[in-house]
C-alpha cells in the first residue's frame, strides 16, 4: 500500500481533528443555533407588534433580511472557530506534530480550509433553510408572504451562507498569519465589527468614500436587499471581500511555508 502524504489523507486527518475537540462542537452548535433560531425569533417579535404598525412601516418591512438576520450573529461563531482551527494548534504546540507529519506544510492549510469551509457551508445552508422557512411560517400568519422566488430572496439567502463561509476562510488565514488566538480574534473583530463603527463617525463624504471598501460592508452587500448609491453592487462587494480573503490566504500560505514553526 502506498503510504505517502496526500491532500486527501491530510483532509481526513483534519476532519478527525475538527470533530475531536469539544470547543469546535460548541462553536458549531452556537453558530447553528444563531443561524436557525434568530430569524424565527425576530419574525415572532416583529409579528407580535404587526397590528400596531402604521401603513408606512408595513410597506417598508423587510421580511427577507429579518428571516436571514441570524447570519449577523452566526458569523461571529464561524469566525472565531475559523481562527481557532489553526491558532489552537499554535497555542498548544500541536502545530509541530502537524508539520512533522506533513512537512510540506501547505497541505495542512488547504485541508483545514477544505474541511472547515465544507462543514460551515453544509451546516449554515441547512440552518439558513430552517430559519427561512420557519420565519416565513410566522410571517404568513400575518399575510406577509415571501418565497425563495421573491425578488432578491435567493441571492440574499445564498449570499448570507456564502458570506459566512468566506468569513471562515478569512479567519483561518488570519489565525495562520497572527498565530495567537487572542490576537487573531481581536484582528477579526476589529476589521469586521469595529472598523464599520469608526467609518460611521467620520464625516459623510469621507465615510461614503471609505465604507464600501471595508471588508464587512463589501462582504455583506450580497446579503442585503437594498444598496446605497455609493456602495458596491451585491456581487461586486462580495467579489471584493473574496479578493481580501484570497490575499489573506496567500500571505498565510507564504508565511506558513517560510516561518520556523
Amino acid at each position: 500500500m502506498s503510504s505517502e502524504v496526500t491532500l486527501a489523507r491530510v483532509t481526513r486527518s483534519e476532519w478527525t481533528k475538527l470533530w475531536s475537540l469539544r470547543s469546535t462542537r460548541w462553536s458549531l452548535f452556537v453558530a447553528c443555533l444563531a443561524m436557525a433560531g434568530l430569524g424565527p425569533l425576530i419574525a415572532a417579535v416583529s409579528m407580535a407588534h404587526w397590528n400596531q404598525l402604521g401603513e408606512f412601516q408595513r410597506l417598508t418591512f423587510n421580511p427577507l433580511e429579518r428571516a436571514m438576520g441570524g447570519y449577523r450573529l452566526a458569523q461571529l461563531a464561524i469566525g472565531v472557530l475559523g481562527v481557532m482551527v489553526i491558532s489552537g494548534e499554535y497555542s498548544t504546540g500541536m502545530i509541530r506534530s502537524s508539520l512533522m507529519a506533513v512537512p510540506k506544510r501547505l497541505p495542512v492549510l488547504w485541508a483545514k480550509l477544505l474541511v472547515f469551509t465544507g462543514v460551515a457551508f453544509v451546516l449554515m445552508l441547512v440552518t439558513a433553510l430552517i430559519s427561512f422557512f420557519a420565519s416565513n411560517a410566522i410571517f404568513t400568519e400575518h399575510h406577509v408572504n415571501q418565497t425563495l422566488g421573491s425578488p432578491h430572496a435567493l441571492r440574499v439567502f445564498a449570499g448570507s451562507v456564502l458570506f459566512m463561509c468566506v468569513t471562515g476562510v478569512f479567519c483561518t488565514a488570519l489565525g495562520t498569519i497572527i498565530r495567537s488566538t487572542a490576537g487573531s480574534i481581536s484582528a477579526y473583530v476589529g476589521l469586521m465589527f469595529v472598523l464599520p463603527v469608526v467609518g460611521d463617525i467620520l464625516p459623510a463624504s469621507l465615510s461614503n468614500a471609505i465604507n464600501p471598501y471595508l471588508p464587512s460592508v463589501a462582504g455583506t452587500e450580497v446579503a442585503s436587499t437594498f444598496h446605497d448609491p455609493y456602495t458596491f453592487s451585491a456581487w461586486g462587494g462580495f467579489a471584493l471581500f473574496c479578493g481580501y480573503t484570497l490575499l489573506a490566504v496567500v500571505v498565510a500560505a507564504v508565511l506558513l511555508k517560510r516561518r520556523d514553526a
Binding site: 481533528k17 475537540l21 498548544t92 506534530s97 506533513v102
Partner: peptide, 26 residues
C-alpha cells in the same frame, strides 16, 4: 520524533491525537 516542548492539543484525546497523525499517511 518526540520534542521536548509538548506538541499535543490538550483538548483532544490521546487516541484521536494519534489517529489524526496516522491518517496523514495512511
Amino acid at each position: 520524533a518526540m520534542l521536548e516542548a509538548r506538541a499535543i492539543h490538550t483538548g483532544r484525546s490521546g487516541y484521536n491525537h494519534l489517529l489524526a497523525l496516522a491518517q496523514t499517511q495512511g
